[in-house]
Simulated scan of single mutants.
Amino acid sequence: MTVRGEDALTANLTGGLARLARAHDGAGPVTVLKDTRVTVVRAGDVVVKAHPPGTDEAALTARLRTAARLPGVLLAPLAEWIEQVEGRLVTVWPAGEPVDPDDPDGAPWEAAAGLLARLHAVPVDGLGLPPAGGPARLARAVAQLDGLSTTAAEVIREAFRSLPPEAADTGPGAGRLTHGDWHLGQLVRHQGEWLLIDVDDLGAGTPAWDLARPGAWFATGFLAPDLWLRFLTAYLLAGGTAVPQGDPWRELDVPARALTVQLAATAVAAARTEDRPLDDVEEALVSSCGRIISTALPQ
Rank of each mutant, 00 (worst) to 15 (best):
P207I: 08
D247F: 07
F231Q: 08
D201N: 13
R276S: 06
W249H: 09
A224F: 03
A219W: 06
V188T: 04
R291W: 13
G205D: 03
S287F: 05
T233N: 11
L196Q: 02
T266Q: 14
T220M: 11
L187V: 13
D247G: 00
W249S: 04
A238D: 09
R213E: 14
L195E: 07
V199T: 14
V281P: 00
A271R: 03
L195S: 05
V243A: 05
G192I: 07
P207M: 09
T273G: 11
A258N: 02
D198A: 08
Y235E: 04
L196V: 10
R230I: 11
T206Q: 12
V188F: 10
L285K: 08
R257I: 00
V281L: 13
D201G: 06
G221A: 12
T233S: 11
T241W: 06
A208P: 00
I197N: 05
L252G: 05
H190Y: 15
R250D: 13
W194G: 03
A270V: 01
D247H: 12
A208N: 05
F231W: 13
L196D: 01
L263A: 13
Q191L: 13
R291I: 06
A269C: 07
A270T: 15
D201C: 14
G239I: 08
L263Y: 01
L232H: 05
T241C: 10
L278M: 09
D280I: 10
G221N: 09
G192C: 06
R230L: 15
P277V: 11
A208D: 01
L263N: 05
F222C: 02
G221I: 10
A234T: 13
R250K: 10
L187A: 02
E274F: 09
D253S: 12
D201P: 00
S288A: 15
A256I: 03
R189H: 10
D201V: 02
A258L: 00
L229R: 14
E251P: 02
L232N: 08
P244C: 04
A208F: 04
L195V: 13
T295N: 10
P244A: 03
R213Q: 12
H190S: 07
A238H: 06
P225I: 10
L263K: 02
D198N: 07
E283W: 10
H190T: 06
E251I: 00
L236V: 13
A219P: 01
E193F: 04
C289P: 06
L211W: 05
R250A: 15
Q262V: 00
L236W: 07
V281C: 01
L223N: 10
A242N: 10
P248H: 04
D226M: 08
H190G: 00
I197E: 09
S287P: 00
F231N: 08
A238T: 10
T260F: 06
D226T: 15
A238W: 01
R230A: 13
W209L: 12
D226S: 13
L232F: 04
I197A: 06
S294V: 07
F231I: 14
L187P: 02
G221K: 11
T206N: 14
